[in-house]
Each structure stands twice: as C-alpha cells, then as structure tokens.
Amino acid sequence: MTSQLAVVTVTYNSGDYLTTFLRSLGEATTADPQVIIADNGSVDGAPERAEREFASARVVRTGGNIGYGGAVNRGVAELGPDIDYVVVANPDVEWSPGSLDELIAATERWPRAGSLGPLIHEPDGSVYPSARRVPDLLSGTGHALFSTIWKSNPWTTAYRADDVAPSERPVGWLSGSCVVLRRTAFDSIDGFDSRYFMYMEDVDLGDRLGKAGWLNVYVPSAVITHTKGHSAGKNPELMLPAHHRSAYRFQADRNPGLLRAPLRLALRIGLAVRSKLAVRAARKALDNNGGHVTGDQR
C-alpha cells in the first residue's frame, strides 16, 4: 500500500491545523504515504515546520495563491506513476483511527469508483452533508438563492440529499475536503478544473467523473472531522464572492447557448445579490464577536 498511496494537501496559512492533520494521518492508515504539501503562499511557517517534523512530508511551492484545485493538480504532478490512489484533503481535517485504510479497502468493493469520501463530522459532532446530488439548473438556482433564508426549501433538500440515511453508495459528488481519488480516473479527466479558484471544484470534479463513467462512492464507515472555514472565515470579502462566481461558472458551463442566455443572466444577477448579502452578514458576525464564518455556503 505504501508505494501505491500518496496524500496531497493544500495550505494557505494553515497554522497548527496542519500539525494535527499529519499526526492524525499516522493513525488513519497502516501505510506510510508520502505527503505533498502544495503551498499557496503561506507566511506562517507551518509548511516548513511540517517538513522538518514529519519525514514523509514535502513542501511544493505553487508560486502564489492559485486556488484549491490548481494547487491539488500541482501536487499530483509531483507524484510518480506508481501511485494508484491520491488522497486529497484539507489541512484542517483530523483523521479518525483507521479511517484512511477503510477508504482504501472500499476501493476493492467498488472497482469503478473514481472517488471515495468519508463521513465528515463538524467540530460539534454533527454530520456534514458531504455526499450530494449534482445540482441541475433548477435545483442549483433554488438552493443558491434560498438556502440561507429558507433552509427547508425543496431544492436544498434535494441537492444536499438530506432525505437519505448514511449508507455506502454511489452519489453525485463528494466533498473535496477529504476524498480518495483513483489515479487513473483523476488523470482521465485531467484533474481539477483550475478555473475554479475556490468552491465548486469538487462538484465539477464529481460531475465530470460521473460523465466519464466513474462512480463517486460515499463510505460512511470511514470518519473524519473537518474544521471548516478557518481561512475563508477570515476573509469573507474575498471568499464568499469567489464561491458565488464558482456557482455561476458551474451552471453556465452546463447551460450554454443563446436560448439559455436569459437564464444565465438571471442566475448571475441573483447570485450577485446573494453574494453581497452574504458578505454583509459575515462581516457583521466578525465585527460582533471576532469569530470565524464557518457556515457552509454551498
């Protein structure tokens, strides 16, 4: 397993989260995978410290903040052809004992799985809806426009698959915060679309894997904890508009042509309004309590 498995994580001033990530990784698998830290311009010293303290870790500079998907692609490019499985995970993930081995074991049960993802706990112990349906124009627009003001709306419920109990099964897409990718599948679709700076790159990846004949498989017997938004929450003016631009790109790419131009225009306007409201609310929350904005905007 050691020669077949590698881990890629993307850092941008990740601080002590990266140390927790690497320490817990040692208990998540009996293998000793190489870890590529694709760094997007950190100035906190965390990548360098990790490289000194963990023999398996190696820092790769991306040359600047090129976004999540682009940095993952840069990290994967460092891996040799003997790597069969690439684990892509955020540095603020904490692995449960045996969780990565459980994901790798599931690849044997699902030989057509291009990606496999675990059950993800929030820091408060609640389950994050990480295995979702691919949003079409109607459900994606309904969710994007109403999820924050009408949480029980039918489009969000369908998109997040809130009505489905956790079970090992194929799904539309898996959260890119922690996912095992079969190298042949990842390479067959040319990896992440680097046009997505942040957010929706995992939705796009899962959709393209599915269209290429691969499965995205949810494996809830593998469990991790993800402290979401430690970076995004500090910069809502940058990250929230990036999310809304990515949401528009995803639907615009899948709904081209003159006939759908009015729909794309309405979506662009709606998302622009939602973005401004989200930034305003996030800034107010930060000003009031100095905390992070960690709520899921997707």
Rank of each mutant, 00 (worst) to 15 (best):
Q4A: 15
V8D: 03
V10C: 12
G15K: 12
L18A: 08
T19C: 08
T20Q: 11
L22Y: 03
L22D: 02
G26E: 08
E27W: 10
T30D: 06
A31S: 14
D32G: 13
V35G: 02
D39N: 02
N40L: 02
N40G: 01
G41K: 00
D44P: 07
A46E: 02
P47H: 00
E48F: 10
A50E: 02
E51V: 14
E53I: 04
F54W: 07
V60G: 01
R61Y: 03
R61Q: 11
G64S: 12
G67V: 01
G67C: 12
Y68D: 05
G69M: 11
G70S: 14
V72N: 02
R74I: 04
G75L: 10
G75I: 06
V76R: 00
A77S: 13
L79V: 08
V86N: 05
V87F: 13
A89G: 04
D92E: 13
W95A: 05
P97M: 12
G98P: 04
D101H: 13
R109Q: 14
R109C: 09
W110F: 15
P111G: 09
S115N: 05
H121L: 15
G125C: 05
G125F: 06
V127A: 07
V127P: 01
Y128F: 13
V134N: 05
P135V: 10
P135L: 13
L138C: 05
S139D: 08
T141R: 15
L145C: 10
L145Y: 08
T148P: 00
N153V: 11
T157D: 03
A158V: 03
D162M: 12
D163E: 09
L174I: 11
L174H: 03
S175N: 05
S177H: 05
C178F: 06
V180A: 07
L181W: 05
R182D: 05
R183E: 02
F186N: 00
F186C: 03
S188F: 08
I189S: 02
G191F: 08
G191Q: 06
D193N: 15
D193K: 07
S194T: 13
Y196V: 05
F197M: 13
M198Q: 10
Y199N: 12
D202E: 13
L209S: 02
G210M: 06
K211F: 01
A212T: 03
G213A: 10
V217I: 12
V219H: 06
A222G: 06
H226T: 01
E237N: 14
M239P: 00
L240W: 06
S246R: 10
P256S: 07
L259P: 00
R264Q: 07
L265G: 04
A266Q: 05
A266H: 05
L267H: 09
R268M: 08
G270A: 12
G270R: 13
L271Q: 10
A272Y: 04
A278Q: 14
R283W: 01
A285L: 11
L286F: 04
L286Y: 04
D287Q: 15
N288L: 14
G291V: 06
G291T: 11
R298H: 12
